[in-house]
Design a binder for these strands. Structure first.
Lengths: 240, 240
DNA sequence: CTAACTTCGTGATGCAGATCACAGGTGATT
DNA sequence: AATCACCTGTGATCTGCATCACGAAGTTAG
């Protein structure tokens, strides 16, 4: 089959191997069958925009492969990256359910495979399949939960250093590296983007990293970051 | 019937007059009947705590009367008020759906009437009533939407003045006063609480109000605030 | 009607971090 | 190897606001 942007496209959800690990995708057979009928399997290159904040909801995007940057943006161009979505997440869900405009902008940062479902089709699907509807509620709860974490991090931390430390710890816990004494993680983002994630300026991020290195708390090798002193980092993250 | 804390308790959802105006409550007859069977109508005095951030979810709280303060709190005691919930909202919903701990603390700021539903009962109810399940998804979308607004306000505004202006405009739009040239609104919160809503210090709020008054943008009469210059306020809210 | 709180108003001070400005790195592209 | 575009590092400066500190003005209670 054709494979644009260097992706191995999983054509059908019915035969998808990773389905069972994913909260939303792991539907009972009838629902899955119905979903199969209304979805459009699509592929996007890196840097494609799935939807823009403020647009009327066209439908949902189930992310199968690749990562997507979710951000909000102020009138004067300042950007805040809310999260980096991973495969298995459903994007544009809340807007499609409520009918309100998308509240975020979604932009791919890898080549991505996405299953798109038109809003009307999706709503009909939800009416017919109660079990899927509950999955949606679960997904939305997850999203709400994540948003609350974001609010907490933005609203309750005093310093930029604290937020950076929180972010690094969070990242390290995602790679199964959390248990290790000295977790490693790939820094796939630029300082600029990290700054946008914690709501600060690029220069501050650079300075903070320099400081962490000087204090032997982290160490970088190319684009991998090694956390040498996890307890110290945790101190910075929790305290002030 | 008994009427604690000076409330007129609406005993049954079936005869509730305000039901139709409320997103979640306006259920089709069978679901409503079932809901009636699992809910506990309860009343709380002002200052009661419905649930605390971090607790395992016991169930949902449908707010019938009164207002509830939703906040998150850091280890060092700093508090951020996320929102003031109004009648019709369902509290503790996302935690009850996902099974994760409550992400907020809910505290009444008026005498309140609340319908409580135990988590297991609620989940069973959702399985049996697909239409209610969709309502839940809608509610969660609302909540997610609100959380996104919060994130935006916290993460993208440069100054405390901007956030205060946003808050005042938002409040004025809730009372049907938005259309008027000079909307009035009751300031039911102290400067301290307002500060906790916009993530700043009490003194700053006082100073900002003083400044707005000096510039003839607002004017206060006792606990009512009159917005004299809406365009100026909007300038402050959007720009910097 | 005074005491005891709570909330509000305002000055003085200090610091975190935004912003500007520029220099050195790094990797692609040709 | 040379150009370009984009990152990273670092100094200098400037400001918004947190924090401390205290006194005035409301509010509740005895």
């Amino acid at each position: 089959m054709i494979s644009p942007y260097g992706l191995d496209i999983v054509e059908s959800c019915l035969t998808c191997k990773t389905r069972s690990e994913r909260l939303f995708c792991d539907l009972p057979a009838p629902a899955l069958q119905a979903f199969e009928g209304i979805k459009y399997a699509t592929a996007y290159p890196k840097g494609a925009v799935l939807f823009v904040e403020g647009q009327a909801p066209r439908g949902i995007f189930v992310l199968c492969k690749g990562r997507v940057k979710l951000s909000i943006c102020s009138t004067d161009g300042k950007t805040l990256i809310v999260k980096i979505a991973e495969p298995g997440e459903v994007l544009g869900l809340s807007a499609s359910v409520s009918g309100k405009p998308y509240e975020l902008t979604a932009e791919t940062i890898d080549p991505c495979q996405v299953n798109f479902v038109k809003r009307e089709d999706f709503l009909r699907f939800l009416r017919d399949h109660a079990d899927a509807c509950f999955r949606v509620a679960e997904q939305l709860s997850e999203k709400y939960n994540a948003a609350c974490h974001e609010v907490r991090s933005l609203g309750l931390s005093h310093s930029a250093g604290e937020k950076l430390a929180k972010l690094l710890l969070e990242w390290s816990s995602k790679n199964g590296e959390a248990t290790k004494m000295e977790p490693r993680l790939k820094l796939a983002l630029t300082h600029e983007e990290i700054a946008q994630m914690i709501g600060t300026s690029r220069e501050t991020v650079t300075r903070l990293f320099a400081d962490l290195k000087k204090r032997q708390i982290v160490q970088s090798k190319g684009s991998t970051l090694i956390i040498r002193n996890k307890t110290a980092l945790r101190m910075i993250a929790t305290n002030n």
